[in-house]
Amino acid sequence: AGSTTLRAVGKLQVRLATKTEPKKLEKYLQKLSALPMTADILAETGIRKTVKRLRKHQHVGDFARDLAARWKKLVLVD
């Protein structure tokens, strides 16, 4: 499952970095939220930084902030 999640995170990371349409960004964040994330995947992909960049986004900022905070707890636990 780890390598599958890693690939999925990579694809979503590229999309988050290149797309600007709020509905698409929200969809990608929801998909990321549903993935079985680990501290290793967060470290290897840097996805948390990508998501943190969206914290001030008018439409998806709250979602991005919550997701980044949830992942921060995951990193602190591991």
Rank of each mutant, 00 (worst) to 15 (best):
Lys49Glu: 15
Lys49Ala: 15
Lys72Leu: 03
Ala43Tyr: 08
Pro36Ser: 07
Glu21Cys: 13
Thr45Pro: 03
Gly46Thr: 04
Leu6Asn: 11
Glu44Cys: 05
Lys24Gln: 13
Thr18Val: 08
Gly46Ala: 06
Thr20Cys: 13
Val60Trp: 00
Ala64Arg: 00
Leu12Ser: 04
Phe63Leu: 12
Thr4Ser: 12
Lys27Met: 13
Lys27Asn: 12
His59Glu: 11
Ala8Glu: 15
Glu26Arg: 06
Leu67Asp: 00
Leu6Lys: 06
Thr50Ile: 11
Gly46Lys: 05
Phe63Cys: 05
Arg70His: 10
Gly61Val: 01
Asp78Arg: 08
Leu74Val: 06
Leu67Arg: 02
Thr50Gly: 03
Gln30Cys: 08
Thr4Asp: 15
Ala34Val: 08
Arg65Val: 05
Lys49Met: 13
Arg53Tyr: 12
Thr5Trp: 09
Thr50Arg: 02
Asp66Ile: 08
His59Met: 11
Ala34Thr: 11
Val14Lys: 08
Ile47Phe: 02
Ala17Cys: 12
Val9Thr: 03
Glu26Val: 04
Ala64Gly: 02
Lys72Ala: 07
Ala68Ile: 09
Thr45His: 01
Leu16Pro: 00
Leu76Ile: 10
Val14Glu: 15
Leu35Thr: 02
Ala8Asn: 11
Pro22Gln: 01
Gln30Ser: 05
Leu74Asp: 04
Lys23Glu: 15
Val60Lys: 04
Arg15Ser: 14
Thr5Gly: 04
Gln58Thr: 11
Arg70Gln: 09
Gly2Thr: 12
Met37Lys: 03
Val75Tyr: 11
Arg15Asp: 15
Thr50His: 04
Val77Tyr: 10
Asp40Ile: 15
Phe63Gly: 03
Pro22Tyr: 10
Leu32Cys: 03
Phe63Lys: 08
Gly10Arg: 14
Lys23Asp: 15
Arg7Trp: 11
Leu67Thr: 00
Tyr28Ala: 11
Val9Pro: 02
Leu12Pro: 00
Asp78Met: 05
Val9Gly: 01
Ile41Arg: 02
Asp78Ser: 07
Arg15Ile: 14
Gln58Lys: 11
Lys56Ile: 11
Leu12Ala: 04
Glu26Tyr: 02
Thr45Gln: 03
Ser3Pro: 15
Leu67Ile: 06
Gly10Leu: 15
Lys19Pro: 14
Ala34Lys: 09
Lys11Leu: 13
Ala39Gln: 06
Lys49Ser: 14
Leu54Ala: 00
Gln13Met: 10
Leu32Thr: 07
Gln13Pro: 02
His57Tyr: 02
Lys11Gln: 15
Lys72Gly: 08
Lys31Phe: 06
Leu67Gly: 03
Pro22Gly: 08
His59Thr: 12
Leu16Gly: 01
Ala1Val: 09
Leu32Lys: 05
Pro22Asp: 08
Val9Arg: 04
Asp78Phe: 03
Leu76Phe: 13
Leu42Val: 03
Arg65Ser: 09
Thr50Trp: 12
Ala8Arg: 05
Ser33Gly: 08
Ala1Pro: 12
Leu12Lys: 01
Leu76Lys: 08
Thr45Tyr: 02
Ala1Leu: 10
Lys19His: 14
Arg53Met: 15
Gly10Cys: 15
Lys56Asp: 15
Glu21Thr: 09
Trp71Cys: 01
Leu25Thr: 01
Leu6Thr: 07
Val9Met: 04
Leu29Trp: 02
Trp71Tyr: 00
Val9Asn: 00
Ala43Lys: 10
Gly61Ser: 07
Lys52Thr: 08
Glu44Asn: 02
Leu54Glu: 01
Asp62Lys: 08
Val51Met: 00
Tyr28Ser: 07
Leu6Arg: 05
Glu44Arg: 05
Met37Gly: 02
Val75Met: 10
Leu29Lys: 05
Asp78Gly: 09
Asp78Val: 04
Gly2Glu: 15
His57Cys: 09
Val77Cys: 10
Leu6Phe: 03
Val77Gln: 12
Met37Leu: 08
Leu12Gln: 02
Thr5Arg: 04
Thr18Ala: 11
Gln58Leu: 14
Gly61Asp: 02
Ala39Asp: 03
Lys73Ala: 13
Lys23Gly: 14
Ala34Trp: 05
Lys52His: 10
Arg7Met: 14
Lys31His: 08
Thr18Ser: 11
Ala69Ile: 06
Ile41Leu: 06
Ile41Met: 06
Lys52Gln: 13
Met37Tyr: 08
Lys27Ile: 11
Ala64His: 04
Leu32Gln: 02
Leu67Glu: 02
Lys19Arg: 07
Leu42Ser: 02
Lys27Trp: 07
Thr4Arg: 05
Gln13Ser: 05
Gln30Leu: 06
Ala1Gln: 13
Gln30His: 09
Ala17Pro: 01
Leu54Tyr: 06
Thr20Pro: 11
Ala69Leu: 09
Lys11Met: 14
Lys52Leu: 14
Ala43Asn: 11
Leu76Val: 13
Leu12His: 00
Lys73Tyr: 05
Val75Lys: 05
Pro36Ala: 08
